[in-house]
Design a protein around this nucleic acid. Structure first.
Lengths: 146, 146
DNA sequence: GTGATTCACTTGTAAAATGCAAGTGAACTG
DNA sequence: CAGTTCACTTGCATTTTACAAGTGAATCAC
């Protein structure tokens, strides 16, 4: 028996976040964008995680709708499509670093590099800034800025 | 989420975290445990989010398996069941505060109290400690510690 | 120029997860 | 001891996902 009350999800920050990215494939895609420099549709497929093409297309278009990613055509080969993180996506970095920190402490099979996590624990702001730098580099590569 | 694949995530922390809590109902349950003092099975149902009894039971038992919650009988009324957060769950507090911070900035309908979020931005560690205190109080209430 | 290939999806369908309503049994209450 | 509370479980319809196979536009090879 479900005892239902008025459903009011409005304004709850956790519910809002859940609606944007609380899903295992969303986690993987955001990891790829924020930490692995992946930008092309094909990059996400080949990441070895086994995401299906229809699910990937679905998640990418939802990330467009929610303002996390923007979709672009490659300048030199227009059939290639890349996705860039928005500022709203960059602001997820602290969340994901915090998740990495937590997982490193609780997953006995973790492969988080020792130096990385120690650097983060010593100076989180620096790790955030470094991550932003790497993201900017990855963006520059696909947008062919010289 | 509930597929029996425990293998080949290669120690990736984001994948690990995804396997433990990347799901909308998991987000809601953890919010209830960490910030709203909910402990009883019935509390989660009556939270107004509309979770079904079978899904709630499924998620609670998975949180037991993953070491996030522990299940207990109420001392005075043994048919009542409560769930307590483990240290592993408490260590999720920084993640969830970070999520609240992000959502507050991007959800135009946010209802995060101004004072709360400003306090967090001024001194995150204090907000984490305060949250731990409130959790300890909520735990003490159901365990009847005097 | 044309046929093959790359690329980013879309479509079809079976399997799995979810949502909803009802049921169950143990524990408590009057 | 009959009725109620409680924490689930069960059955079933709907929705979502996974997997495989297209599709059509763009590019490449010759």
């Amino acid at each position: 028996m479900s005892r239902k009350e008025t459903i009011n999800w409005n304004g709850c920050p956790i519910r809002y976040a859940a609606s944007v990215f609380a899903d295992r494939w969303n986690f993987v895609i955001l990891r790829d964008v924020l930490f692995k420099g992946r930008r092309y549709y094909g990059d996400f497929l080949d990441a070895g995680e086994g995401i299906s093409t229809n699910i990937l297309a679905d998640r990418l278009s939802k990330f467009e709708e929610t303002g996390i990613l923007t979709r672009h055509q490659d300048a030199k080969k227009r059939s290639r499509i890349y996705y860039l993180p928005t500022p709203k996506a960059l602001e997820l970095i602290p969340i994901f670093l915090s998740i990495i920190d937590w997982a490193e402490r609780h997953d006995e099979h973790t492969e988080v590099p020792e130096a990385f996590i120690q650097g983060y624990r010593l100076d989180a702001d620096k790790t955030i800034a470094d991550t932003e730098q790497l993201i900017a580099l990855a963006n520059a590569q696909v947008t062919n800025i010289q």
